[in-house]
Computed example of a mutant assay.
Amino acid sequence: MNNILLFFLMFCGGLAVAMQPSINSRLAQKIGFLESSCISFAVGTLALYIVALVAGRGSFRSLSEAAWWELSGGLLGAYFVSMTILAVPRIGTTAALAATIAAQLLTGLVLDTFGLFGFRQIPFDFKRAVGVGLLIVGASLIFRR
């Protein structure tokens, strides 16, 4: 898969992530906060299970070989979805996403710098620091009331 296609797919993923909190928050108004989180994950799990069965190239049988922390992604995702459901009605979608993006970029910078989780190490440099710093400043400006 070429990098332009990957960039486009991630851009589409960003669109989905931007809409998801508002959609889940609307559902929460009807069924409740935790129930909305649960339904969000249940629908996503079912959809991914079907796609994995049809198009997957891996095997669920190898799950027993995974380390405990490699299974924590779902827990982290559930936390994120739940927190956005709480935050969006109170601080707005833009502020919630600004905080999310700033935290993601800062965390990404640390993960890349130290090559954590066994991925390629990408050196910390001035341009990356300024870029993340400006995004954090931008997020704080969006959040100010």
Rank of each mutant, 00 (worst) to 15 (best):
L86K: 11
M10L: 13
L53T: 02
S40Y: 08
S82T: 10
A18K: 07
S40H: 07
N24W: 00
F8C: 12
F8V: 15
T93N: 14
N24E: 01
M19N: 07
V43Y: 01
M10K: 07
L75N: 04
G74Q: 08
I50K: 08
I91N: 03
N2L: 06
S72V: 10
A28F: 00
A95E: 07
R26H: 13
V43R: 01
V51H: 07
S22H: 11
R57V: 05
L71N: 12
F80Q: 11
G56V: 02
F11E: 04
G74N: 07
A98M: 08
V54C: 10
P21S: 04
E65V: 10
G32M: 01
G32S: 05
G32P: 00
S25W: 05
I23C: 03
C12P: 00
A16V: 13
V54G: 01
R57N: 12
T93P: 04
G13Y: 01
L97E: 06
G58M: 06
E65M: 12
L15K: 04
A67G: 09
G13N: 03
T84F: 09
G77M: 03
A87N: 10
M19A: 15
G56D: 02
C12K: 02
T94L: 13
A98E: 09
S82P: 00
S40F: 09
S37M: 06
V17N: 09
G58R: 09
L48K: 02
T94R: 08
M19H: 07
